[in-house]
């Protein structure tokens, strides 16, 4: 980790008419750090994530990102071409529903290779080699490379989506409920995999989840949101073991103990 943050978020607000999406969010994210955003449905988690990842224009505030050249750039003052280039090279976005993040009608290999081709790789053999390598890293066997994601199980699709995002070596990955809709054992494997990859690659990640167990396993820090506001913010273990806000206490105590 370095002294300079990767992402600086200040005063980000999003209003849907008079309704609040999220209000006055401030935080910084450092390289290699995983931040979890937790809260119940409708608390503004996904709105905030979309505002940070340039998928949704915030009403107010600024999001600054440290580019590879070391300079901070305000995402909303960049040209659209630069923003889209950033999104498919230096960033990743893992959707809750893999069908949103994958091309369901082209093979797994092409799904992984798309970003490489988008940045100008024109050598079939090399693209395929990289794709095979990445499928291996997300525990998809190499003989499935020419199968379409339609033929994959939910867990495999999610892992394929992760491979597709990580192939260009991004520095920041956004994840929206990455384990939503998966059964518990598959969830556990996926979390294990993501944790390993984040460690190995030194990725920074922002993970939106309603599942506190996911936050506990993956994240270093977490933010608790309620009604569009960040009500508590701190190290994951501190927030979960010693919640200060009444709402967070409620949230933590409502986890079923098996």
């Amino acid at each position: 980790m370095t002294d300079t943050p990767l992402l600086k978020v200040s005063g980000v607000s999003k209003f849907y008419g008079s309704r609040i999406g999220c209000k006055d969010v401030n935080f910084e994210l450092w390289p290699g750090e995983v931040l979890a955003i937790v809260g119940e449905s409708g608390s503004g988690k996904t709105t905030l994530l979309n505002c940070l990842s340039t998928r949704l224009m915030p009403t107010a505030g600024s999001v600054e990102y440290r580019m590879r050249d070391g300079n901070f750039r305000d995402l909303y003052h960049m040209s659209e071409a630069e923003r889209r280039f950033l999104m498919r090279t230096d960033w990743g976005f893992v959707h809750q529903n893999p069908a949103d993040g994958l091309r369901m009608t082209v093979s797994a290999g092409a799904n992984v290779g798309e970003r490489l081709m988008a940045v100008g790789d024109r050598h079939y053999g090399r693209i395929r080699e990289t794709a095979t390598d990445w499928l291996g890293r997300v525990e998809i066997s190499a003989d499935r490379i020419d199968d379409q994601p339609r033929a994959f199980s939910g867990g495999m699709r999610q892992r394929l989506q992760i491979a597709r995002n990580l192939v260009t070596g991004p520095r920041l990955v956004f994840m929206d409920e990455p384990t939503g809709g998966l059964d518990v054992s598959v969830q556990a494997r996926l979390l294990d995999l993501v944790r390993g990859l984040v460690n190995d690659l030194g990725l920074a990640a922002i993970v939106v989840t309603h599942d506190l167990a996911v936050a506990r396993l993956l994240s270093h820090r977490m933010m608790v949101m309620k009604d569009g506001h960040v009500i508590e913010h701190g190290l994951t273990d501190r927030v979960l073991d010693d919640p200060r806000e009444p709402y967070t206490q409620l949230l933590v105590s409502s986890i079923l103990q098996v």
Binding site: V106, S107, G109, A110, A118, R122, I127, I145, D146
Partner: peptide, 22 residues
Amino acid sequence: RKMHALEEYGLMHVKLYEDIAI
């Protein structure tokens, strides 16, 4: 139209990749 405007033609090669793979 946006892809043409921003010269994002990676997708075209995805199609050719699929052809070779299949």
